[in-house]
Design a protein around this nucleic acid. Structure first.
Lengths: 234, 234
DNA sequence: TAGTGGTCTAGACCACATT
DNA sequence: ATGTGGTCTAGACCACTAA
């Protein structure tokens, strides 16, 4: 081993042994005490290395039973979901935002069912376009419950955009995000400047605070968009 | 605070104060020493709570400058990427797999460019269908580099499926995953039993080991598929 | 240059699951 | 019953960076 025996070294060394097959899938790893002796480190140090390997999905830990290399390394990916503005700017493009429609109306049935809202909840419905270098990049179709966020009734969404307004004004506790493919309807096609029926990448998100639904949003990206992440660079 | 003063309590309490606005966005949090006094905990305990809050994207930590509540809480979602078999079985459906095509051929140009492979690399190309309760669920189009995984040339993929074979036989170090929408071509439409041009959710993944490309796969899901995750339940 | 977070140590107690 | 991981403590040194 090296001189410094930090948890990073311990983790990297164990990782290398797992990848090389020295610790085969399903194999029992040495206990923490044993690893302390091998690496000359304190238990807290070894523990942190092992805990992170477990979080990364490479090993499985159980009291009394010890730590085992996972048979099928748990595949998990972390996606960053930045504000559109940040996403566009980080690509070196100029960001512009336009509020296309805004109105107050009762929650439609399909959304009431989805958000489990009581009947006759008033919502603010917004349609927005986000441009990258003056080309439509994302079409945002958003619903905000005025019961959960009364301030949204009169807030000016022309300058900042509902997403940033919500981030600043309405904290949330839980969100559900889902990704899917969506065939462009006439409205979306016109907004994004593509053919109707074109295959678009869609992100849907709904958020709650203490059980109460705050907002639902559908984000349609221009054709060809990819959401990418890299995994396991450790 | 409570009696036990574990890092979970400290974390939960700080989280509640952030969400309630007691610590506003941008605000400077007390230093670790100060928090130790307030909670009556050791610094390692407070440190773990703060470190996890930082990992969760809620606060930002800098040496000397202290810890601040993030202006825009960093949104990140973790997706589990299980084996299709596990995904289908966990929905309570019966899993079946069928190998539709398998051949050995030189890497096509578009893929060579994408994987940065040398010319004339031999690949095994496979087309597979994964069924849930006898309905097509996912169409897998896979390429495996025989340079990186020679064993794949003669491996029997009829019983197990290339994904599971790879998991068991070829460790990988890095993967790139991307999500997008894809308009069904004739082949995919026939495989999945949908109309050509239908909007399908696609997952693409490529993996490397020590700089060498191992495999590229495109996974097309049946129409209507959603990939969902929940965030911030803490 | 001083204050903050990052990390390590040595020791301890406990919860839990397997035996 | 016993061994393993989960967590906490008290103290220490260090790296970084804002002032």
């Amino acid at each position: 081993m090296t001189q410094s025996v930090g948890y990073r070294e311990v983790k990297a060394d164990l990782l290398a042994q797992i990848r090389s097959g020295a610790f085969a899938p399903g194999a029992l790893l040495p206990g923490e005490e044993e690893l302390c002796r091998r690496y000359g480190a304190a238990r807290a140090t070894v523990n942190r290395a092992m805990r992170e390997l477990a979080e990364d999905g490479l090993i499985e830990r159980k009291r009394r039973a010890g730590s085992r290399v996972r048979e099928a390394p748990l595949r998990q990916a972390r996606f960053a979901i930045p504000l559109v503005r940040v996403e566009i700017e980080s690509q070196g493009a100029a960001y512009r935002y336009a509020l296309m429609r805004s109105r107050i109306l009762p929650c439609p049935d399909w959304l009431r069912a989805r958000l489990a809202l009581p009947e006759a909840t008033q919502m603010r419905h917004l349609a927005c376009l986000h441009f990258a270098d003056e080309r439509p990049y994302q079409f945002e179709d958003r619903w905000i419950s005025l019961a959960a966020a009364p301030g949204a009734r009169d807030a000016d969404m022309a300058a900042l955009g509902p997403n940033e307004w919500l981030v600043r004004n309405v904290p949330f506790s839980t969100a559900q995000i889902s990704f899917s493919a969506y065939a462009a309807d006439a409205d979306a096609a016109q907004m994004l400047g593509c053919a109707p029926g074109e295959s678009l990448f869609r992100v849907e998100r709904q958020t709650w605070r203490e059980g109460a639904s705050i907002t639902y949003v559908s984000l349609l990206y221009r054709a060809g968009h990819r959401m990418t992440t890299t995994v396991g660079a450790g």
